[in-house]
Design a binder for these strands. Structure first.
Lengths: 212, 212
DNA sequence: ATTTTTCTACTGGTTTTCCGGTATTTCATG
DNA sequence: CATGAAATACCGGAAAACCAGTAGAAAAAT
């Protein structure tokens, strides 16, 4: 499929400028068509549920959905798309999480145009593509980020934020229309997942993992 | 000078993509020429010491020099240039400082292309241009910057970190060789200073203020 | 259709935090 | 030396969190 002469690309980025930049760069490449440009996660998902794309260029800092979540959503809808993450964020955790969630590449926005083009053509041939800076980040192991972020359920994320906002168990129960006992269970599970023994430590580690 | 039919623009941005995007957008505008594109502050200053530019589109997140400093440098070398700041940063302090340092406009990167074009043409006619989002930020007094970080004593900072690390009152007391009752007092004072009613909220706000 | 995960809810008890005061000692600075 | 800020410490009681376990219903995934 990817070996055909008409390769489709979609671009997702909430910055119109970057969108334009990509379009401009790609328009002269033979056998390659930009079939969609989107400035929000939802728009792109709507499109992909009706069409296919060979390559998805994905800015991970979208307003409506985190790049990580969007990545796995896209893979669900359109599993053969190759996703290349485009980001300013060169944190190891972000990079690895994107790759874990199905991305085929990760390049920083300040990569040179040549590098970008190179990555796109490489991705078409099935390689895992990483821009130079990203490779450097991955090369040297980061001590801090060996601790992986546990996977949280929707409800747990919700409770986590409410705890961080200073709510008590009963307050949360009232807001969510569930029993206080249930809220306590969720909190307990959260603390277990993060291997901490009280709420302050929970909030601390959650904020380190940028889950608030 | 600005009223001539040949208006020169230079663009400074360390993201080649954005650079391309601007070029693409501007190339069809009559009477307007992009005379330079630079990915570092130094390059642009070198250029401007030999040439003039009517408009400078300036990304304020450059690797080698802060946008604020570069802005005043440019104004020294080329005082009649109109500088439009292009940024992801919508913090009030950043915006006002750029304007104080001689910028004629400030737009966010996620502005629509139409908005961008509008701003550029407006700037040519001498207006102060601000993108919609920026206007909103300036319109309403900043919430974050009203709540100043309370001044903490040495001991309070110490206790704060120990709480964040998951210690209970008695554990902290043991480590610091003081009475648990004293620890409780410190915690109480911390919560009072930050105007929160429990420890999780305390840790949350402390981490926002980067005190951990 | 069946397994797994998530959300829900409970019992019963222990520990810790939170609240409202008050009060003494220490130490630096005017 | 006086004044104020910081650190120390206390009481009593109410509220909330924490622990260990169980378990059914709903939703999602296979």
């Amino acid at each position: 499929m990817q070996q055909d002469h008409n390769i489709s690309i979609i671009i997702i980025d909430d910055h119109p400028l970057v969108l334009q930049g990509f379009r401009y760069l790609l328009k002269d490449l033979k056998g390659l068509t930009v079939t969609g440009c989107f400035t929000s996660a939802q728009d792109s998902l709507d499109f992909l549920s009706g069409h296919d794309a060979d390559i998805v260029l994905l800015d991970i800092n979208l307003p409506d959905l985190s790049g990580i979540d969007l990545c796995s959503e896209i893979k669900k809808i359109s599993p053969f798309s190759r996703i290349i993450a485009i980001s300013n964020n060169n944190e190891r955790s972000m990079i690895t999480r994107m790759l874990q969630n199905g991305a085929s590449g990760y390049i920083l926005k300040n990569a040179s145009t040549e590098e970008l083009m190179h990555c796109i053509t490489d991705a078409l041939s099935g390689k895992l593509v990483l821009s130079r800076d990203v490779q450097q980040v991955l090369a040297q192991p980061d001590l801090r980020e060996l601790k992986i972020t546990p996977r949280l359920t929707r409800r747990e994320k919700e409770i986590l934020k409410l705890i961080a906002a200073g709510n008590t168990t009963t307050e949360m129960a009232d807001q969510l229309f569930i029993s206080p006992l249930t809220v306590e269970t969720h909190r307990r599970n959260l603390m277990q997942k993060f291997e901490v023994s009280n709420a302050p430590a929970l909030i601390r580690i959650a904020s380190e993992h940028q889950l608030l």
